[in-house]
Simulated assay, not measured.
Amino acid sequence: MADKLKKAGKTGKRHAGFRDPNGENGDDLYKKELYELQVELVKLHKDVIANNRKLLVVFEGRDAAGKDGTIKRITEHLSPRETRIVALGKPSDRETSQWYFQRYARYLPAAQEIVFFNRSWYNRAGVEPVMGYCTEKEREEFLATVPAFEEMLKGAGITLFKYYLDITRDEQKKRLEDRRKDPLKQWKLSPVDNAALKHWADYSRARDVMFARTHALHAPWYVVSANRKREARLNVMRDLLSRIDYDGKKAKLTVPDREIVFSFDPAYLENDRIAK
């Protein structure tokens, strides 16, 4: 078990029911657990629709951390009419002149909807300052105001979840190299991706500031150890399902491995729980 944890780039003890979807008979186990969790997600969405709920799930993380794949598996069997995935590109000149949150507010969920942000307003805490796309003043204004913005979302009846997918530098290097070699994944490559390894330490510092300034009781950060894609996907699903009540829930299926998904704590910046 210690070897498994070492490969994942983390240390700690697994819960007693831990099963490894990357190990022996991993394909069958992964498909079985994925199916069971996707059934639970459909139950959740039926409940969201029936009770006019509004769910918003934000995914942030390193380039190549697995945001696309995780969102794809979560949304695969949800109702397309009430599910939206938001992955915004470069802002237009008009959008750069707007109130910063205005660009994102138009995509917030209405009643019966679940919205997934594949990167979000947190670009201003990470990508933009590292790549020189915003000023330090603009970043500071964002960090000072985003807690109030998210408090407003809660007041408007939106349930917000924030996940940060964390991988090691070696794993990121491997995945970016795989992208360059795979003709079906080359569309994912961008100037930001190409600079990811060069600016590894800069992104780490920006992430640490983001956590320290924007982790709050009303909008906490959940960190995902994502070196192992299958574990990460399944445990994000379990964690999300565990935090919401819905009709017909099979609670025993929604218990995440807390070595894989865990609430942020400032102490984790001082040890190896989060990749440096």
Rank of each mutant, 00 (worst) to 15 (best):
K43Y: 04
K43G: 03
F59Y: 09
D47P: 03
K54T: 10
K46I: 05
L44T: 01
L37R: 06
V57G: 10
K46L: 14
L34S: 01
L55K: 13
V39M: 00
E60I: 02
K32L: 14
A65I: 01
K43A: 02
G69K: 08
G61C: 13
F59S: 12
A50L: 10
E36P: 02
L44F: 00
L29S: 10
H45W: 07
V48G: 05
N25F: 15
K32E: 11
L34I: 04
D47E: 05
E33W: 12
E24N: 11
Y30F: 12
K54N: 11
G23Y: 10
E24G: 15
A65F: 01
R53P: 11
E24S: 11
G61A: 12
Q38Y: 02
L41S: 02
E24H: 15
I49N: 02
N25W: 15
L41F: 07
R53W: 10
E40T: 00
A50E: 09
Q38V: 00
L29N: 06
G61L: 05
K32G: 03
I71S: 12
H45F: 09
D28C: 13
D28L: 10
V39E: 00
E60Y: 02
K67N: 03
G23M: 15
R53E: 12
R53T: 07
N51Y: 15
D68E: 08
E40N: 00
A65Y: 01
T70I: 10
K31M: 13
K67C: 05
E36D: 07
D68G: 11
K32S: 09
V58L: 12
G61Q: 14
K32R: 08
K54C: 15
